[in-house]
């Protein structure tokens, strides 16, 4: 193992996660290498800092309070579960009924097809345009005049 390899293993060395052989190699290297010894010292300071920072405090009666809270939550959940279950089933049933009704309605009512011609003729019934469109070339001078006047 060279210097770089050992630097990468310092973390595992500190945690005593290396094999006995590797542990010995790193140990000997650290004893002779100032840079690696410094890194190891910094890792140890970080560890000490984290351990010193573990200052969380809980009230004296925390355990009984937490147990009470947990029990209460469970009771609440078990009270709601059957209600929720029934409500979900009701919503699902309602949805199915609506779906069925929509299906039946759309199946029973058949819409008539609307052709462009019928649409136009409906919109322009008895107009000069409809006569020109649907009667082909059978138009008179009056038809043209009427069409021109109606466009004004």
């Amino acid at each position: 193992m060279n210097h770089q390899d050992i630097q990468r293993r310092l973390s595992e060395y500190l945690d005593e996660e290396l094999s006995a052989v590797d542990h010995q190699i790193v140990k000997e290297h650290v004893a002779a290498c100032g840079e690696c010894a410094d890194i190891l010292a910094q890792f140890q300071r970080i560890r000490a800092g984290i351990q010193a920072g573990a200052q969380a405090e809980l009230p004296h009666a925390f355990s009984s309070r937490a147990l009470r809270a947990a029990r209460l939550q469970m009771e609440k959940a078990s009270r709601w579960t059957p209600v929720e279950f029934t409500a979900r089933r009701a919503v699902l049933a309602l949805f199915l009924v609506v779906l069925l009704l929509v299906g039946l309605t759309s199946f029973g009512v058949q819409q008539e097809g609307v052709s462009v011609e019928r649409y136009l003729s409906g919109e322009m019934s008895d107009s000069a345009e409809s006569r020109i469109l649907f009667n082909g070339a059978d138009i008179s001078k009056e038809d043209v005049l009427l069409a021109a006047l109606s466009k004004r």
């Binding site: 969380a56 405090e57 959940a77």
Partner: peptide
């Protein structure tokens, strides 16, 4: 406390952990 910092939430979250465990 170490993960989140701030003491104000520690008690509530610790309690929440035990509620989840209980469940």
């Amino acid at each position: 406390y170490l993960t989140l910092g701030g003491r104000d939430i520690v008690e509530d979250l610790t309690q929440e952990v035990f509620i989840r465990a209980y469940r």
